[in-house]
């Protein structure tokens, strides 16, 4: 006879784990922090950093990756991938990144755009709210 646990035990355990994940996901997605600098990395190397607070008008530029080309568009406070020649275009569909902690990724091109806090530590993080 193998050791087993009741259905109720598993339901409680997994429901708790689910709520924890869902809560963390919401927090990471929504919470605008002091992250105002967009960091673009290809293959783990930083290729460009843009202070989104310094952007005054919408502008686009291209990023060359070993897998292909992504066109990145910035506007005041936001950044997105507007065009890409990757097979799935998931990066384009992700839309604008504006303050959340969850980065835009283009896995086929190994391109990641994440927001980091400006000043890199020497300035105290602004209290959001």
């Amino acid at each position: 006879m193998k050791r087993t646990f009741s259905n109720r035990f598993w339901a409680a355990l997994l429901a708790a784990a689910f709520l924890l994940c869902a809560g963390a996901a919401l927090l990471l997605w929504r919470t605008p922090g002091a992250r105002t600098v967009a960091r673009i990395t290809v293959d783990g190397r930083v290729v460009r950093e843009i202070d989104l607070t310094a952007v005054t008008a919408e502008a686009s530029f291209t990023v060359q990756t070993p897998g292909g080309v992504n066109t990145v568009t910035v506007r005041p406070g936001g950044i997105c991938v507007s065009e890409a020649d990757c097979p799935d275009h998931v990066c384009v569909k992700q839309g604008w990144l504006e303050g959340g902690a969850v980065p835009i990724v283009c896995l086929p091109h190994r391109l990641v755009i994440s927001l980091v806090s400006g000043g890199d530590g020497d300035a105290p993080d602004a209290v959001s709210g």
């Binding site: 997994l14 784990a17 689910f18 924890l20 994940c21 869902a22 809560g23 963390a24 996901a25 990471l28 997605w29 990395t41 293959d43 783990g44 190397r45 902690a101 969850v102 980065p103 990724v105 896995l107 190994r110 391109l111 990641v112 994440s114």
Partner: peptide
Amino acid sequence: VAVAVTGTIGLLAYLPVLLASGMT
């Protein structure tokens, strides 16, 4: 794998939303 391929730890921010949807 995604963290290893892109060399970006920040992708871990995806983990909660993936876990929540994956569990559903």
